[in-house]
Design a protein around this nucleic acid. Structure first.
Lengths: 232, 232
DNA sequence: CGCATACTTGACGTCATTCAAACCGTGTGG
DNA sequence: CCACACGGTTTGAATGACGTCAAGTATGCG
């Protein structure tokens, strides 16, 4: 099945947005849409010539596994994000769907040719790559600093901001896109600690848990304060 | 003072290596070399239109500071590495020289024009950016997993590999490029814990400390085993 | 209904932090 | 030349945070 760029929800925000109509059509001819179930893997660490993809809808995680088989989440990918290592001979990490996800995939040779043919695409991917780098460093800041409570507060605040449309205010009500276990390994904690600290944050009146995944931000300022991050 | 690309030690490995002679000369005309003392800052978080730079020799750190003024190291930059945020309106992190460093700096407008003029440069920077992203995720893996001893062992092994010329074997003798405090904050530990664990690694016979910064790898396999990372 | 999966909660142990003091190499001034 | 201060480091003892183990509670699915 071919791509329907005209109806693509990320046609204005993904990397291919910089292309002209004709260029995009040409690129689309090489691409394939793919739908992943929650938990399904796009490619695994060690895969050779793994495809690259733009995420159209849903959410992905980039993860590594250590010697004991414990997962560590290294990055989250949101719609219009790009995954895949363009220059490495093989993938270094696993990429797995967190929820049902729709992707626009490209074989490595096709994307390499496109980079040559469309300089604007290369610049767009450069920009995106730098944003990914920034996000990665942001996650390091988040995960690598302070006590469990502060890290959890920071993560919740980040998710609230990501869930909001207005981009300046965090959302008041939203669903955590991750299980407790996934939150735990993003923060280098255990499931139990995450659960306990969530309880504490609720008791302190910073948040309220609704159902398993739902979060209501009762006191965003308190949350930000607990997170120990500088106010912007 | 202008650039002397002909004698540049990273002329074949930096991003500008993809340019032709004439193109490089044109770009060099816009660049300036700059030498930083150890501890000197290239630019600070929040700087607007901070310059971009290729590191010619020395070493840099990319760091963030939290509310209490604690530094967190987010990345190390080695010769031929590129620093600077090309698209963000202001710098998100501090960039500081670890040792005396020589850089080749470019003003933002100049580098932006070069990206338009030389598509190969954009592709080269894309490649470098993806490598940086990979390195960042590698650091997350390193810092975010397992016990203090395992993280320290992994970091030492990484430095040994980086210090080696042969790229497949780690160096047997090398100098840590960081102080104890810098090691500590890369690993989210305290200075004291780093010192203690170094002592333990030495007592176990994995390494030997020579002077303040010197490390001798007595038993690399043991070190890798302690680090809990999968053998390649 | 019964099982599986995710989450919560409690009791206990371990490991890293904290606080404190001493150490060492280096540079400075008397 | 020695005394001294200073930054980086090492070491020790006590506290406390997080992990571990274990049990118990939802929620959903066959």
């Amino acid at each position: 099945m071919n791509l329907a760029c005209a109806e693509c929800p990320v046609r204005d925000s993904a990397a291919c947005a910089v292309l002209s109509e004709e260029e995009r059509d040409a690129l689309a001819a090489a691409g394939r849409t793919r739908v992943l179930e929650a938990g399904e893997m796009l490619f695994a660490a060690g895969d050779e010539d793994a495809a690259c993809a733009t995420l159209v809808s849903g959410a992905l995680k980039v993860a590594a596994f250590d010697a004991e088989g414990n997962e560590q989440i290294l990055a989250l990918v949101h719609p219009s994000g790009f995954v895949g290592e363009l220059f490495a001979p093989f993938a270094h990490h696993d990429v797995i769907a967190l929820t049902e996800s729709r992707l626009c995939t490209f074989a490595r040779p096709d994307i390499e040719r496109a980079l040559e043919d469309y300089p604007a695409l290369a610049r767009a991917l450069l920009r995106r790559s730098q944003e990914d780098l920034l996000a990665s460093r942001g996650l390091m800041e988040l995960a690598g600093h302070g006590k469990a409570e502060a890290r959890l507060a920071a993560l919740i605040y980040d998710f609230a901001s990501a869930a909001s449309k207005s981009s300046c205010h965090p959302a008041q009500n939203f669903e955590l896109p991750l299980t407790r276990g996934e939150i735990a390994n993003m923060l280098s904690l255990t499931i139990e600690t995450v659960s306990r600290k969530l309880g504490q944050l609720e008791k302190m009146g910073a948040i309220k848990r609704t159902g398993k995944r739902g979060i209501e931000l009762v006191d965003p300022a308190m949350l930000q304060d607990i997170s120990g991050r500088v106010l912007v």
